[in-house]
Design a protein around this nucleic acid. Structure first.
Lengths: 152, 152
DNA sequence: CTGACTTTGACTTATCCTGACCTTTGTAAG
DNA sequence: CTTACAAAGGTCAGGATAAGTCAAAGTCAG
């Protein structure tokens, strides 16, 4: 069993036993406990606790820092929003993004208010300071994160 | 819980319970009560109660000195959301962003749902593919665009 | 042997805590 | 008045704590 698997298993276990679906951990502590370098925790988080897989990760640095993992996935029935999150790839152009969001709105999966916010957050207007080559990736990531946040 | 968190919580609590929305405190007294050095009060005030985060801090030195913390009043002629949009500069770090959004939610200018979406859209987690040097500008731009979308 | 996944560690950034020293204000003695 | 001292609060740099980034090297199935 790879160390990454153990880290993932440990976190999943924390999530199981937490009734609020939230696991809070300390990176250095966990790394030492499981015998790996701290940055490997980041590797596991970014590769296996993504929005596509139904997780949201928050963290804080500095004294009293932490990493919090929240599970929004209810494995049973995959809600339509989750389906969309999974269907979006690593990059997303502006017109596809619009189509997806408008579609969700017509199907009443999201409110008009929410749709409007998401649309401007995916528009190039908001990305004036971001070089073009990063925008489609950013768009994909933002959409996935925002929809995932709506599920929980 | 870090001491800084306790200090902030204490002040927020004072603000809650004061009917005029003003908290007045004595630095040395509070420091002793909470078991920290006086200058840590300043640290908390300058890092978490800034104008950008919706607070105004006044103080006086010398005998009978005090520190007063107020929530900013929005001018009547302008809707609070618009006010916030104008107050946000060209760059915005993550903690200011959080404070601003939480403040708006607290004032019921935005719903909890909307606040949650905005918060993840401003989080570094969503910016994995964007080089660090662009993130604070992107964050500012996104927040302003999203809030503007809510107004119209 | 190639490509995807994993592991590592050097370096970076963010946040918090502390203490030494500085400035402002009130007030009482001379 | 002036001066001196006491009673506040202010600033700043440095150390402690903790997470993030990135690229290079390792592993392993196909």
């Amino acid at each position: 069993m790879r160390i990454s698997d153990e880290i993932a298993a440990y976190i999943l276990n924390m999530l199981e036993s937490a009734e609020d679906g939230e696991a809070e951990l300390r990176r250095n502590e966990l790394a030492e406990m499981l015998g790996c370098v701290p940055s490997q925790i980041n590797y596991v988080l970014t590769s296996r606790f993504t929005p596509e897989q139904g997780y949201i990760v928050e963290s804080r640095r500095g004294g009293g820092g932490y990493i919090r993992v929240r599970r929004v996935k209810y494995c049973r029935s995959m809600p339509p929003l989750m389906h969309t999150v999974n269907a979006v790839g690593d990059t997303l152009n502006i017109s596809s993004a619009q189509a997806i969001v408008e579609n969700l709105m017509y199907r009443r999966e999201i409110s008009e208010d929410v749709a409007r916010i998401i649309l401007v957050a995916l528009s190039d207007q908001a990305y004036r300071d971001v070089p073009v080559e990063f925008r489609d990736k950013l768009r994909a990531s933002l959409l996935k994160h925002m929809l995932t946040a709506l599920i929980s």
